[in-house]
């Protein structure tokens, strides 16, 4: 479904992705974990061309996309082609990015109407169905500023789903939420995973990564250090770097637990 081959990417002199290769199968849920600055988000953002890549090839649905070589010639996708790919690969952001001037329903219908060319009635029906699914049917006419962070993020997920995407990219979608609102968003994501949605999830939620994902990828310093089944990676990490990271996360969680019980 999604395939990255030896992706390199630099911001100026800063080499953020080093030879990153990753394959995500259809209906697979891949969680990407790792310390801040490890290139997780950048890798995710390359998948739907929110960032250009320096070198390497990205394929979606078996098709090389954005810029690639064929028969020794460099091919660069047109804007229209890139837009068409983005319409098939949804993205949910850390900061929700709902459109503040539109109601919840309009947030969800604007792209299906204007990008996919659906009728307003059809798009609205789909939107209301999705709101039901994320548990926000009663907020259909509300504006984003009237919602809590968790509710906004669930609307953002519904907005991505309304495009009937083949895969969804989640970019630290719970990092900006108050702790008590994280659960409601993760529940929605878990339900999506159960339905067989292809998902790439950059996250700091180790519990989610362990319980929901089919595969966990650990990144550090712009490289994929290790990847594997969640129980393997979490209980028997092969690399020193992975062990260090998991230990520090575990310690932090323990401290938070201790603080909470105090």
């Amino acid at each position: 479904m999604i395939r990255l081959e030896s992706i390199n990417k630099s911001f100026g002199a800063h080499h953020v992705l080093k030879d990153v290769s990753l394959t995500v199968d259809k209906a697979e849920v891949v969680c990407v974990i790792g310390p801040s600055g490890s290139g997780k988000s950048t890798m995710l953002r390359c998948i739907n061309n929110m960032e250009d890549i320096g070198s390497g090839t990205i394929s979606i649905d078996g098709q090389p996309v954005y810029r690639y070589e064929r028969d020794g010639k460099l091919i660069v996708d047109s804007e229209k082609q890139i837009e068409a790919i983005r319409a098939k690969v949804g993205m949910v952001f850390q900061s929700f990015n709902l459109f503040p001037h539109l109601t919840v329903t309009e947030n969800i219908t604007v792209a299906p109407i204007h990008v996919l060319g659906r009728s307003r009635g059809e798009a609205t029906d789909i939107a209301l169905g999705l709101l039901e699914k994320v548990g926000l049917a009663m907020k259909a006419q509300a504006y984003p500023h009237e919602l809590s962070g968790g509710q906004q993020q669930r609307v953002a997920i519904a907005r991505a789903l309304a495009m009937r995407p083949k895969a969804i990219l989640f970019d630290e979608v719970t990092s900006a939420l108050d702790p008590e609102l994280v659960g409601e968003v993760l529940r929605v994501m878990r339900a999506l995973a159960d339905e067989g949605m292809t998902m790439v999830v950059v996250t700091h939620e180790m519990g989610f990564a362990r319980d929901v994902s089919d595969r966990v990828v650990f990144m550090a310093d712009g490289k994929i250090v290790e990847s594997g089944k969640p129980h393997e990676l979490f209980s028997a990490p092969q690399q020193e770097r992975t062990r260090d990271f998991l230990r520090s996360v575990l310690e932090r969680n323990r401290e938070m637990g201790a603080a909470a019980s105090r």
Binding site: N48, E79, E83, I85, R86, F93, S95, A111, H114, V115
Partner: peptide, 12 residues
């Protein structure tokens, strides 16, 4: 973020 969200939805 508004630009990013619009782009991610495939808007020109």
């Amino acid at each position: 973020g508004q630009v990013e969200a619009a782009k991610a939805l495939g808007m020109s």
